[in-house]
Amino acid sequence: MTSEPLIHLPTEIVVQIVADVATDKSAQKSLYACCLVSRQWYSCTITFLYENPQLGTGNSFTKFTNTICPPIGVRKSRWNLGSLVHRLDLSALVHHSSPSLTARLLGKVKDNLEVLLAPRTSFASNSLPSLSKCLKLRFLDLSLVASPMLFKDLKKSLSSLEDLRTLRLPQSTSVMESDSFNIPWPPHLRRLQFSGHFLAAPMRTFPWPPSLTTLTLKNCADLSLTNLSSLMCSPDLSRTLKRLTISGQNRHLSADSITSILAMVPELSFLSIPGDMVDGTFFELLCHIGIPTLEVLEFGYPSVDSEVYFTTESLLKALDYGLPNLRAVGFAEIFCSDEDSLDDDAVDDFLLKRAEMRKWLQPGAGTADPGVYYV
């Protein structure tokens, strides 16, 4: 009795099969199984297996680090597996790692790493030298990092990352002195999440990234009117900034702080603010000064409570007189949950009618999802 001959699949077919498997969110186990089929399947699968490793459950992180950067005395793979890693999400790690291990791991994956989400407790100053060598990094999220580090040291480690486009600073960021101001930002940084402690006086001369278009203020220790005004007073910032988000996760926010934004950054196309920090004065100023460039206005999750302190009528008046090109309004669903809350249907009708008129007057206008949406 003879066994049937094995069917050989062309390598390009195997690659296509593996690529389809890799699109599944729980593909890690399946990709590992594909590596065990044959040498051909291993060579086709290994890049997919390590491109975006899933490390948030069980002992997966320990297995991964033992393979990528094995302890002394353990046999190393002949493959440079660290160079296959493009995305590294360590945000789910709590006690799985240590600062020294994180530093070693970054040193192993530096060649092609493009996205890094840092862990809370095991990223520290000793990781910065390795981070500075990740020259292909495009997205860096340090927002969970709790270990304090000097802001000037962080900027030095990032200044050579020419491909970095998005940066989220640590909650522990402390900009208390101006000794870091002369250190250049990554040259093509466009999106920044600013967090931590800062003093009003030094921030009046704070040099923002020259190509910055998107700014998020989150986990700031003090966004009182004085501090926020100092933070946002840069003429360069008002010239380049197009998208601004002020999260409800900031301390000492007030309605006055939020209203002051309208005069500081007059050329925004997107503005997101905590809905409970907006009052009638905000819309009165909007009607007076106007922001013709604004296309999206978002009333995000509250800072303190779930109430709003403005009326639907005041919002509609601002849409009519101060926001001629606004096409969409976003609401946190908590503000539209009962009959006594905002009349989001009236706002939606207003925006849809405006879009129809613009579409009729200007062919092609008003086609980018006008109306109300929920966040």
Rank of each mutant, 00 (worst) to 15 (best):
M1S: 12
S3Q: 12
V15C: 10
L31N: 02
A33R: 15
C35D: 06
L36H: 12
Q40S: 09
S43H: 09
C44F: 12
C44L: 10
L55F: 08
F61V: 02
F61Y: 13
P70K: 01
I72W: 12
G73R: 11
N80C: 14
G82S: 02
R87P: 00
L88I: 07
H95Y: 15
H96N: 03
S98Y: 10
L101N: 07
K108S: 14
A124M: 13
P129H: 08
C134T: 08
L140S: 05
D141Q: 09
L142H: 08
M149D: 13
F151E: 03
K152A: 08
L154P: 12
K155R: 15
E162A: 15
T166H: 10
L169P: 08
P170D: 01
S172I: 00
T173F: 00
M176D: 11
M176W: 06
N182A: 11
P186D: 06
R191V: 01
P210K: 09
K218H: 05
D222L: 06
L223C: 05
T226W: 00
N227W: 00
S234W: 13
D236I: 15
T240Q: 10
K242I: 09
K242E: 15
L244Q: 05
S254F: 11
D256Y: 01
I261C: 07
I261T: 12
A263P: 01
S272P: 05
V278F: 00
L286G: 12
V296A: 07
L297A: 08
E298D: 14
P302E: 07
P302C: 05
T312W: 06
K317A: 11
D320K: 15
R327T: 13
A328C: 14
V329F: 02
A332T: 03
C336P: 09
S337F: 02
S341H: 08
A346L: 15
A346F: 05
G364F: 09
T367F: 00
P370A: 06
